[in-house]
């Protein structure tokens, strides 16, 4: 899209980025044409450590043909008029500039409060967090454990059934055994959700939603960082009705972090998918699929 604006003339191929200046140093790069239409380029150069290095690259050149409406092509060739008359082709910086990148992803149930982009204050906060080297105990991401998107579906690593930190109001002082068996994870549980809170459970949590989620949710690891949610959906949809696909992405680069969660409507579908997709090759990596760990 915006690439048209940034295109610098004279640069034809990304592969030439490095070779151009280095090629002048020592022997000229050898280019051989292969039978399958690719080219092999052998370059000898001296690397940063002062060592002589030989690099062999195999490149396939593809010509991208674009169909264009002849009227549009004609209009592109028109000479400029009015205030622009006589000016060279291409956007001029005084009238045309590029704005900041905007991330726009349509979402179901959009609410204005949930900003699509972070406000400047948020960014500042994020910067500070980055410097502090934070590691989530659940997914090892760079956020606080409490902010982890998986805190409801997964238990922290190596903390399967620890005693809860909060005191059970039914049995104060008997903390070690009472709540421990039923509530691992050790996170704070508001009173109305605790065991024996007089049937008030399921208030905000929409009944057994989490149980169902846990039962039919798969954790997929070793996902290619170029994967998209739609790719995963395609793979997993073959084995049953998928209700949710979550692919963890790096906030900065927008690339996948390497793991994802897939929820099925039916547990038997999930089990079958787990069996079949585990070990499936996808984007030069082999997927590992297992059931997501349960919290409660």
């Amino acid at each position: 899209m915006a690439a048209n604006v940034q295109n610098t003339p004279g640069r034809t191929d990304w592969a030439e980025d490095d070779t151009e200046d280095l090629a002048t140093a020592i022997p000229a790069p050898q280019i051989t044409k292969n039978k399958d239409g690719t080219e092999t380029i052998v370059t000898v150069f001296i690397n940063d450590d002062g060592k002589r290095v030989k690099r062999t690259q195999r490149i396939r050149r593809t010509v991208v043909k674009k169909r264009e409406n002849p009227r549009v092509a004609e209009r592109r060739g028109w000479t400029k008029i009015g205030t622009e008359a006589g000016k060279a082709a291409g956007p001029r910086p005084d009238t045309t500039t590029l704005g900041e990148n905007i991330i726009f992803r349509p979402v179901m149930g959009f609410k204005s409060g949930q900003a699509q982009e972070t406000a400047p204050e948020d960014e500042k906060k994020a910067d500070q967090l980055k410097k502090m080297q934070i590691k989530c105990r659940i997914c090892s991401g760079d956020h606080f454990t409490t902010k982890c998107p998986f805190k409801d579906t997964m238990a922290p690593e190596g903390e399967a059934a620890g005693a809860p930190a909060d005191m059970d109001d039914r049995m104060p002082g008997d903390g070690a055994g009472a709540g421990g068996a039923t509530r691992p994870g050790g996170s704070y549980v508001p009173p109305h959700l605790r065991d024996g809170a007089g049937g008030a459970t399921g208030g905000e949590r929409m009944g057994g939603k989490f149980e169902r989620d846990d039962l039919a949710t798969l954790r997929v690891t070793n996902v290619s960082e170029f994967a998209e949610e739609s790719d995963l959906r395609e793979i997993f949809e073959r084995h049953g009705r998928v209700t949710r696909v979550f692919l963890a992405k790096d906030r900065e680069t927008g690339r996948a972090k390497g793991f994802a969660f897939v929820s099925y409507a039916d547990r038997s579908d999930a089990a079958r998918a787990c069996e079949r997709v585990d070990g499936y090759g996808f984007g030069h990596l082999i997927l590992k699929v297992e059931f997501a760990k349960k919290t409660a």
């Binding site: 048209n4 400029k80 009015g82 205030t83 622009e84 045309t96």
Partner: peptide
């Protein structure tokens, strides 16, 4: 007072109608 025309692909101004 001046209408302008622009190329949508790259934002280049084609001209103005005075």
């Amino acid at each position: 007072h001046i209408p302008s025309a622009w190329y949508a692909a790259n934002g280049e101004r084609f001209g103005a109608y005075k």
